[in-house]
Nucleic acid binder design. Structure first.
Lengths: 203, 203
DNA sequence: GTTTCAGGTTAGTGGTCATTAACCAGGAAG
DNA sequence: CTTCCTGGTTAATGACCACTAACCTGAAAC
C-alpha cells in the first residue's frame, strides 16, 4: 500500500497545477471585481492567468465553480481569522477591537474579493450560495457574540444589524475611488476606519 | 407658430408613453438590483413592464441608455435633495443631521437603485459614467462642506474619506437580508442607522 | 525506454441576446 | 373621413460565449 487516494504525491506537475489554479483564482478576483462575474469570459479569465480559454476546465468544472471557490475561500478565511482573533482576546471589548482591526486589514488588502463577495454572491447556484451564506452568518455571529457580551441586555437582532452596518462602513473601501497612495496615508486611513467603526459599533 | 419644439402637447398618447417609460425604469431598478445589469436581458426588462422585447427601443436608444437614465436620475435626486436639506439647515451640525436623515430615508426606501448604483456604475459607457460620477462628487461635496464647517482645521481629503465611509454604513441596507417588517421595526432601524452614522461622522 | 495520462491547444457547437427589419393598428391632426 | 406617424408586434441577423471534441506534448511511473 503506497498512498491513500487523499495523500497526493508532490511532483513537479502537481506544483505547477496548484500554481496555475491559484493564478486563476487571483485573476478571477481581479477581473470579477472590475467587470462583474457576468462581464468576464472564460477566455478573459484564462488569458489573465497566462493560459487560454478551455484550459480553465482542467482546473474548475465550469465558470460557476470558479466563483464558488473564490467566495467560499474568502468566507472561510474571514471566519477562521475572526475566530482566532476573538479567541485570543482577553475581554469582549478587546475582542471587538481586534475584530475591527482584522476586518479593516482584510478589506484594505483584499478589496477585490470583498467587492466580488457583495456584488456577485447572487450569481452563485443555490447550493453554493447557501454554503457561503452560512459561513458569513457564522462570521457575523462571532461579532454578535462579543458585542452581546460587551453590551448585555440588547436585542440580538439589533446587534446583528449593527454589525452589518459596521461591515458596510469598513467594506466601503473598495468603492473608494481615491485609494491612499503612500504607506503613511494607508496607515492613517486604516486608523480612521477603525475609529469610525468603533464609534458606530458602540453607539 | 403653434408651439416651440420643446413644448409638447399633452395628449393621451404622450401620457401613455411617459407612463411606459417610467414603468421600464422601475422594472430596470428592480431587475438590475436583483440580477445585475449583465444578468438582465432586454426581453426580461420589457416583460417586467408589460411589453415585450424590442418595444424598449421605442423609449431608450439601447440597453446602456436604460442604465444611464436610471443612474443619472438617482444621482440628480440625491444631489438636489441634499442641497435643499443642507440649504434649509440653520447650522452645520443641523445640516449634517439633516443629510444623514435624508440619506437614510433614501437608502431604506430606494434600496434597489442604491444597489444598482454601486454595483453597475462600471457598466456605463465612459461618458455617462463621467456624468454620474460628477453628480456623485458634487453630492459628496455638499457633505464635505458642512463637515468642514462643523470640524474646521481637518484635512479635506480625510473628510471626504469619512463621508464615503458613512455612505458605506448607510447604504449597507440593500445588503441586509433580514429587512425590517413592521413600520415600528423600520423606524427603529432608521434611528439606529442615523445614530451610528452620526457617531462615525463625528469621530 | 516505453507507456500513461494530465494539462494544454485549436476547432467546433448550440444557446443567448442586443439590435434591426418589416409590418400592423389605432389615436391625432387636418 | 382620410392621412400620418408612433408605439407595438414578430422574425431575422450577427456577436459573443460557455462548454465539448479531438488532438498533442512532455513529465511520471514502471
Amino acid at each position: 500500500m503506497e498512498a491513500s487516494p487523499t495523500e497526493e504525491r508532490v511532483t513537479g506537475r502537481s506544483i505547477a497545477k496548484a500554481t496555475r489554479r491559484a493564478a486563476l483564482l487571483e485573476a478571477a478576483a481581479t477581473l470579477f471585481a472590475e467587470r462583474g462575474y457576468n462581464g468576464v469570459s472564460i477566455e478573459d479569465l484564462g488569458a489573465a492567468a497566462g493560459v487560454s480559454g478551455p484550459a480553465v476546465y482542467r482546473h474548475f468544472a465550469g465558470k460557476p465553480s470558479v466563483l464558488s471557490a473564490l467566495l467560499t475561500g474568502v468566507s472561510e478565511d474571514l471566519l477562521d481569522g475572526g475566530r482566532v482573533v476573538a479567541g485570543a482576546a482577553a475581554s469582549p471589548d478587546e475582542a471587538l477591537k481586534g475584530l475591527i482591526r482584522f476586518q479593516v486589514e482584510f478589506a484594505v488588502s483584499h478589496a477585490d474579493v470583498i467587492r466580488v463577495q457583495d456584488r456577485d454572491l447572487g450569481a452563485l447556484a443555490a447550493d453554493d450560495q447557501r454554503g457561503v451564506r452560512s459561513l458569513q452568518r457564522s462570521y457575523v455571529q462571532v461579532w454578535v457574540d462579543e458585542l452581546a457580551a460587551y453590551r448585555p441586555d440588547t436585542d440580538p437582532s439589533l446587534l446583528r444589524r449593527k454589525v452589518h452596518a459596521v461591515f458596510g462602513l469598513i467594506n466601503s473601501t473598495p468603492h473608494t475611488t481615491h485609494r491612499p497612495s503612500s504607506a503613511r496615508e494607508l496607515a492613517l486611513f486604516r486608523d480612521l476606519l477603525e475609529e469610525m467603526a468603533w464609534a458606530a459599533l458602540t453607539v
